[in-house]
Simulated scan of single mutants.
Amino acid sequence: MTMEPRSGKDGLSALPGSKGAAATAPYNETFAHAATRTLAANKTHDLGEILVVTGEEPLLIVDDDDGLALTAVHEGKPRLRSACKLLFRHAYQHVSFQVEVEDRTADAHIGLLRHTTLTEVQAFTLHRPKPLRSQEGSRLRHTIDYHAPALDEVQGIVWRGGNLRLSHIHLEP
């Protein structure tokens, strides 16, 4: 099952008061302060500067090699279809984060959302790594580092498709 696309206006309504307002300070999200490790499906979860809008699949905050990560893995089994948005309360010009893709999943789509409209200003497709027999359980890690031009600041991340782990979100005005 896939999540019905939500319009940008629906997403912006989840951002009280600061819709499109430019950030004035850097922000790092490591998911360490989240009140729960399970983010229920079809809900908006307030993590402070970041709101996580889940789709039809719940998300988990799990231990990663070097901290915590957001993923759709449930009880050790990868989900093949996931969809969610991470909305920032403020717009940022520089966005950096890590994504990790396992060999047991489908390709995943990552989009960066423009402030005020939440349309994609940049998109990436992450293909699952092809394992060799000797590399069963391989994982491919990417660092996405995006610097937006003026007036196209980023106000969120959308993730659709295969499972991945998203961590170490660094935002700068």
Results as ranks from 00 to 15, higher is better:
T44A: 10
G55Y: 02
S96H: 01
D63W: 04
L15K: 03
L171Y: 00
P78F: 06
T24W: 00
G48C: 00
K85D: 08
K85F: 14
G76C: 02
R79N: 14
R81S: 10
H127A: 11
V101L: 14
L151Y: 10
L15A: 07
V52D: 01
Q93N: 13
A148P: 06
L60Q: 15
L12D: 07
L39E: 04
T30H: 05
L164A: 06
E49S: 03
S96V: 06
A150W: 05
L164W: 01
K9L: 01
L47N: 00
H109L: 08
F88I: 05
E120A: 13
V121P: 02
I110G: 02
L87R: 11
Y146F: 13
Y92Q: 02
T38W: 06
A106M: 12
L60Y: 15
Y27H: 13
E136Q: 13
G76K: 05
A22W: 04
K85C: 08
T30G: 12
D145I: 08
T143F: 02
S18D: 02
A150K: 04
Y146K: 03
A106C: 12
V99S: 06
S96Y: 00
I157C: 03
H168T: 05
I50L: 09
E100D: 07
V101K: 12
S167M: 13
V121W: 03
V52H: 02
M3Q: 09
L39S: 00
P16T: 04
R139Q: 11
G20P: 10
Y27Q: 06
T30L: 11
T117D: 15
E4Y: 11
A22T: 07
M3P: 03
R141Q: 15
G8T: 05
N42E: 15
P5C: 05
A32W: 01
A83V: 05
L112Q: 03
L12K: 09
A41R: 11
T125Q: 15
T54G: 11
Y146W: 07
H33Y: 07
A32I: 04
E120L: 05
P129I: 02
D46F: 01
S134N: 15
V121R: 07
N28S: 13
A83K: 10
L70K: 00
Q155H: 02
P5F: 04
A148M: 00
A123K: 09
F88S: 02
W159G: 00
S134I: 09
H94D: 15
L80M: 10
L60C: 09
H127C: 08
G55F: 04
T36C: 14
A14R: 09
T24R: 13
T116R: 06
A34V: 12
G17P: 01
L47Y: 03
R114F: 08
F31Y: 03
L70N: 00
Q93F: 01
L132D: 15
E100H: 06
M3A: 11
H170E: 12
V99L: 06
L171N: 05
L118F: 15
M1W: 13
G17T: 00
V101C: 01
M1D: 15
R89N: 07
A108H: 03
E100Y: 00
A69R: 08
H74M: 09
F31L: 05
H168E: 11
L51M: 14
D65N: 14
H127R: 11
E172K: 07
L171H: 01
K43D: 07
T119H: 12
D152A: 09
